[in-house]
Structure formats: C-alpha cells, structure tokens
Simulated assay, not measured.
Amino acid sequence: MTVLLALDTATEACSAALAVGGEVLGRFEICPQQHTQKILPMVDSLLAEAGLTLKAVDALVFGRGPGSFTGVRIGIGIAQGLAFSADKPLVGVSNLAAMAQQALTQEGAKRVLAAIDARMGEVYVGAFEEAGGLMQLVGEEAVLPPEAVTSPWPGLAVGTGFEAYPELAHRLALQMGKVTLPDARFMLPLAARAYTEGSYTDALHVEPVYLRDKVTWKKLPGRE
C-alpha cells in the first residue's frame, strides 16, 4: 500500500492531501497571505486523521509551479524540509496538470486548457488530454499574453487565467469549467504514476517551474 502526502502553495490556494491506498483525505483553503501559517497544520491534521506519522509516508508530492514565485518557493521549501526530516523522496506535479486532472475527475473533461493568471498581462497555460485516466500535457507549458494563447482543440477551460481574461475562452471556443485553483488532492493520481515509474528525486535536487524569471508574486492580491 503506497502512502503519498501532497502539498501545494503555488497560488492563492493552500492545500494538502494524503492518499492511503484507495482513500484520499484533503484540506483546501484560499488564503493568499497565510500559506506559511496554514500548510503545516494541514499536514499535521491529515496525518492525525489517518493515524499515521510522516515516517509512514512513501513519498512527498508538491506543486512545482507554475504559480507565484514566492508561493512555489514556500511549497518546495516545506516539502524539502519534510523530506529531509523523514528521508523520503519527492515528486513534483504541475499545477496546471493538477487543475486538468480535477476537471477530468469532477467534470469528465477529456481535453482541458488550463490557465493561471500570471499578472503583468500574461497567463501560465498548458493543454492537457486524457490518456489512461490521467491528463497528459500536449506540447509545452508556457507563459503568454492572452492574445497569443491558442488551443489545439475545443475543450474545457479551467483556472484563474480565464477569470482574468474572460474573452479568452470565447475566442478559443472553449467551455468554461468549474475549477479555478489547484487542489493537492488531484496531484495524487499524477504523482502515483510518477512514483510507480520511478520519476522522483531527493530533497537536494528539487526543481521548481517558474516559466519566467520575473517575481510575479508582487502582483498577487495582498502581496504588493
């Protein structure tokens, strides 16, 4: 029985999730300025609810980005700390892929264009298509101005990028979905496949995905 613990702080949302066999426990809260205060209590609460310690976890999963610069760093730093303390491997999952996986699970979407508002007149965007019950990236993730975004097919639009630029979904003939922010629960299926295939790393070699070098977190609400 594989036990995976996931956490994500890359956007305005803060979430954690625990997969124990076929059971998934989760915590989710939108709290733009409180990630550092919220995430570890979420983790402790999940482990307590499952009656487990960190040593019982097989791997730690984290939202690797794209997202706010500071949010991605917070999540990676906390995941690294937990991994070091328990000597566990780490699995990074795309925040865009997590939203696409949620759209597949909750809305049955087989094709998803996920976009996170990157501020500064841009969005982080990625196209995903279902294969074997998991959402797979089509092409590459990118950071683009809305007018440069294209879609390989009609599908479901998810993420804050479409809230910030509502004309984008209309232009691309996409149906609006209900998912707006990543949730760690939906990182778990993607991470489980990666872990089974040996696609994990140690805490020293974790790689964030920013997609651009500018410090975008300064533009998030409450973080000016």
Rank of each mutant, 00 (worst) to 15 (best):
R119D: 07
R119S: 04
R119V: 06
M120Y: 11
M120H: 13
M120C: 12
G121K: 13
G121W: 06
G121C: 07
G121F: 04
G121T: 09
E122A: 04
E122M: 02
E122S: 02
V123K: 03
V123E: 01
V123H: 03
V123G: 04
Y124P: 14
Y124C: 06
Y124V: 08
Y124R: 12
Y124M: 07
Y124N: 05
V125K: 08
G126D: 04
G126Q: 03
G126I: 06
G126C: 12
G126W: 04
A127V: 00
A127R: 01
A127L: 06
A127P: 09
A127G: 04
F128R: 02
F128T: 01
F128I: 02
E129W: 14
E129S: 14
E130A: 12
E130T: 04
E130C: 05
E130H: 02
A131I: 06
A131H: 14
A131Y: 11
A131V: 11
G132W: 06
G132N: 08
G132C: 01
G133F: 12
G133M: 13
G133L: 08
G133S: 07
L134D: 02
L134H: 09
L134Y: 02
M135F: 05
M135E: 04
M135H: 06
Q136G: 09
Q136M: 11
Q136W: 09
Q136D: 09
L137R: 10
L137I: 10
L137C: 12
V138K: 12
V138F: 13
G139Y: 04
E140R: 15
E140H: 13
E141K: 07
E141V: 07
E141S: 09
E141Q: 15
E141T: 08
A142D: 13
V143C: 12
L144K: 10
L144R: 13
P145T: 14
P145R: 15
P145F: 10
P145N: 11
P146R: 13
P146V: 05
P146N: 10
P146I: 01
E147A: 15
E147F: 07
E147T: 14
E147R: 15
A148H: 10
A148E: 14
A148R: 15
V149D: 07
T150E: 15
T150W: 05
T150V: 14
T150I: 06
S151Y: 06
S151T: 15
S151H: 04
S151P: 07
P152Y: 09
P152D: 03
P152G: 10
P152A: 06
W153Y: 10
W153E: 05
P154A: 13
P154W: 07
P154L: 12
P154R: 09
P154N: 01
G155L: 03
G155Y: 03
L156Y: 03
A157C: 12
V158W: 05
V158E: 01
G159E: 00
G159I: 00
T160V: 00
T160P: 03
T160F: 01
T160Y: 00
G161Y: 00
F162C: 10
F162I: 02
F162G: 03
F162Q: 03
E163I: 11
E163S: 11
E163D: 14
E163T: 13
E163K: 10
E163C: 08
E163R: 10
A164F: 01
A164G: 08
Y165S: 04
Y165A: 07
Y165H: 15
Y165I: 02
Y165L: 07
Y165R: 12
P166C: 08
P166V: 01
P166K: 09
E167M: 11
E167I: 06
E167R: 13
E167Q: 15
